[in-house]
Computed example of a mutant assay.
Amino acid sequence: MTAVRRPGAYHCGIDAAMDVIGGKWKVLVLWALNERAWRFGELRRQLPGVTEKVLAAQLRELEEDGIVHREAYDEVPPRVEYSLTPRGRALNEALAPLGAWGRRHVLGRAEAAG
């Protein structure tokens, strides 16, 4: 279930975590999936600017790392939904303080300047 892409190459826990969430879109996918499960097209609309190819690749990697669950329903037309696994919810909880820091120290500074 969990794929370690760089076995033995990590120097600390932050290095390992950054390997899982690295890239422009993964944390935004996690943020969107924190609200509810999404179908691919819905998720893509939630992330303006992401291409289908990149979103599909990012979701695949998050699924391989055990962060995202892909549920394919046996329906016509086919329906696939993406949601967070317990590991993904735990990762979002771990990222919450980082988001608070960004709101306070980056976004807050921009609001004060504006």
Rank of each mutant, 00 (worst) to 15 (best):
P77V: 09
R104Y: 04
K26E: 05
L55C: 08
H105K: 09
G102L: 14
P78C: 05
K53R: 10
E71Y: 04
L107R: 06
H69N: 04
W101F: 15
R79I: 04
G88W: 00
R39D: 12
V76S: 15
M1L: 12
Y82S: 00
E61S: 14
P77A: 11
V54K: 07
A112W: 07
V106W: 09
R44H: 11
Q46V: 03
G88E: 02
D74C: 11
E63P: 00
N34M: 11
L43E: 02
K26M: 01
E81Q: 09
R39A: 10
R109M: 04
V27I: 13
G102W: 13
E52D: 12
W38N: 03
P86D: 08
Q58C: 10
V106H: 10
R45K: 14
L62S: 02
V68C: 01
V29G: 00
E75S: 10
P86E: 08
G41E: 15
A16M: 15
C12T: 14
R36P: 02
L28K: 11
K26G: 00
H69V: 02
G23R: 10
D19Q: 14
G49S: 06
G114R: 13
F40N: 02
L33G: 00
H11D: 14
L59P: 01
G108F: 13
G13Y: 12
L95C: 11
L107N: 08
L95E: 13
D15C: 14
H69P: 00
L62V: 03
R70W: 03
I14D: 14
V68Y: 01
G66Y: 08
K24W: 13
D15L: 04
A113K: 09
A110G: 03
E52P: 02
K26Y: 06
V68N: 00
A17L: 15
V29H: 00
A112H: 10
L33K: 01
W101Y: 13
Q46W: 04
G102V: 12
A3W: 13
A90D: 12
W38C: 11
A9G: 05
Q58S: 08
